[in-house]
Simulated assay, not measured.
Amino acid sequence: MAARLFVNVCASIRHDIRNGKLKPGDKLPSERELAETLGVGRPVVREALRSLEEAGILQFRRGITGGAFVSSGDTRTVTRSITDLIFLGAISLDNITEARTCLLRFAAELAAERGTDADFDALEANIDEAVARRDEIDLHEKVRLVGSFHDHLGRAAHNEALVLLIHSVTEVVAQILLKTQPEVYDLVIESRRRLVTHLRARDREAAAAEVTAHQAELHAKVVDRARQLHTLDLTETPTAVSS
């Protein structure tokens, strides 16, 4: 019965979010108020709220004005799920690379169609910063900086769902790159210069081909070492993204 009540509380809050009664940034009623409204005990409400926090739907803030708030979205939930599935053997590195290539190729095609000069300027600025700071930053910051290029590419595609999916998968790949540390920096920069050229020319096919070829080459550089995932000790790195 307690399990059923817990599920009902979660379902009730999710329903209020879906129908617009609760929006990102809104504060939920207190545990006591929710318990009274839903006719359950406070421990049941507390467990449901923590579960929704783990799912990235809610976030908790401390202080006088704190409490449970509807989240604006958190890609870490998707990233954790993918990482867990890798360790369980349900997803291989080959699968991840293939899926990531499809996402990036589609993003490149859309960016060639929809991207603005400002979008392309942001991509080039990211490349220039990565080159300028190559020898100045630590490995984690370097992976984050270089990987943020794909966040810009997703935005240039003007598809928020695509941005979310790319970012989540890229964070997993970032963890692998941090462990394997392949020598691919020059390879990445050169490919991205060519990609932006194709995007500015509105050449969908060339942009997609560049992304596909680069991902295959990058995969070949790391695959032998990255296959040993059980030795990589992948951990959550909320701000890390990959090349």
Rank of each mutant, 00 (worst) to 15 (best):
Ser92Thr: 15
Asn95Cys: 12
Ala2Cys: 07
Val211Thr: 05
Gln175Arg: 13
Leu58Trp: 03
Arg225Tyr: 05
Leu22Gly: 02
Gln181Trp: 06
Leu49Arg: 03
Arg193Thr: 04
Lys27Glu: 09
Arg4His: 10
Ser168Phe: 06
Ala161His: 14
Ser51Glu: 14
Glu171Tyr: 04
Arg50Leu: 15
Arg4Tyr: 10
Val9Met: 03
Ala208His: 00
Leu234Asn: 02
Ala35Ile: 03
Val241Ser: 09
Ser72Leu: 07
Gln181Ile: 10
Val131Cys: 08
Gly115Cys: 02
Gly41Asp: 12
Leu199Asp: 00
Ala207Ser: 15
Val188Gly: 02
Asn159Val: 05
Glu190Val: 06
Leu218Gln: 03
Ala208Gly: 15
Thr237Phe: 11
Gly147Asp: 00
Arg62Ile: 13
His167Met: 07
His230Cys: 13
Asn159Thr: 05
Pro238Phe: 11
Ile176Trp: 00
Leu232Lys: 00
Ser72Cys: 06
Thr37Trp: 11
Leu139Val: 11
Leu232Asn: 02
Leu165Arg: 01
Glu171Lys: 14
Glu210Gln: 13
Ala2His: 13
Thr180Trp: 03
Ile13Glu: 01
Ile17Pro: 03
Asp121Leu: 09
Leu5Asn: 15
Leu164Thr: 11
Glu160Leu: 08
Leu49Ala: 02
Arg42Met: 12
Asp151Met: 07
Asp26Phe: 07
Asp94Ile: 09
Val223Ile: 12
Gly67Phe: 07
Arg105Ser: 13
Arg32Tyr: 11
Leu218Ala: 03
Ile166Trp: 01
Arg61Gly: 07
His158Gln: 14
Arg4Asn: 12
Asp224Met: 11
Glu47Val: 09
Ser242Cys: 07
Arg46Asp: 04
Ile91Tyr: 06
Leu49Ser: 01
Glu183Arg: 12
Leu5Tyr: 14
Arg100Asn: 08
Asp233Tyr: 08
Ile166His: 01
Ala108Val: 03
